[in-house]
Amino acid sequence: MTAQTAASDELLIQQFRDGNSNAFNELYQRHLSSVYRRVRFVIPEADVEDVTQEVFLAALKSLGSFRGEAQFGTWLRTLTNHKVAEYYRKRNRKGEAPQVPLFDAVARTEGNPSKIMEERIALRKALSQISDQYREVILLRFAEGLQFNEIAELTGQNLEAVKSLFRRAISALRNHLDK
């Protein structure tokens, strides 16, 4: 996300606060794809759209309390992470088995669907077990498709530090997969 986009986001937020509800639609369109991809990476396909919409409804509701201390995109990522955590908390409370609907697995045509389903569950479980910092760098690179230099810019770290963090994150993920 560039500084220019951040400035435009701020402008849209101000317009929304001034009563222009179309400004939020613009924010929605601008950030929908990245929120959707982030959610889809960690949540079963059947619930992706619901959770994505919940993120934006929560954003709409609490945009008044957004102080602009971080970029809007960063704030939205935090909100998305909270909604994902809430989703899994609710599932655990209901005692639902960590199932992935069959069509979710079949969507990927290669290989054995049930094997892919198992793999998907295992990877998501491992992702949920690594530290927030590790999970975040994996999500930024894989789910949101940011390049390493973009991640460095976003997080205020240098490129080497981001690559090192990424390698350690993958290593931690692998350790959890092996358990």
Binding site: N25, Y28, Q29, L32, S33, Y36, R37, R40, F41, E45, E49, T52, Q53, F56, L57, A107, R108, E110, G111, I116, E119, R120, L123, R124, I138, F142, A143, G145, I170, L173, R174, L177
Partner: peptide, 27 residues
């Protein structure tokens, strides 16, 4: 190997136009 698994197993492609429009209307 872990990178390959992440790439092959977890969906990470951007949603298509139709999905985006449907989501917008639903929202």
């Amino acid at each position: 190997e872990t990178i390959m698994r992440l790439n092959q197993v977890l969906p990470h492609k951007a949603p298509d136009e139709a999905t985006l429009k449907r989501l917008q209307a639903d929202f």
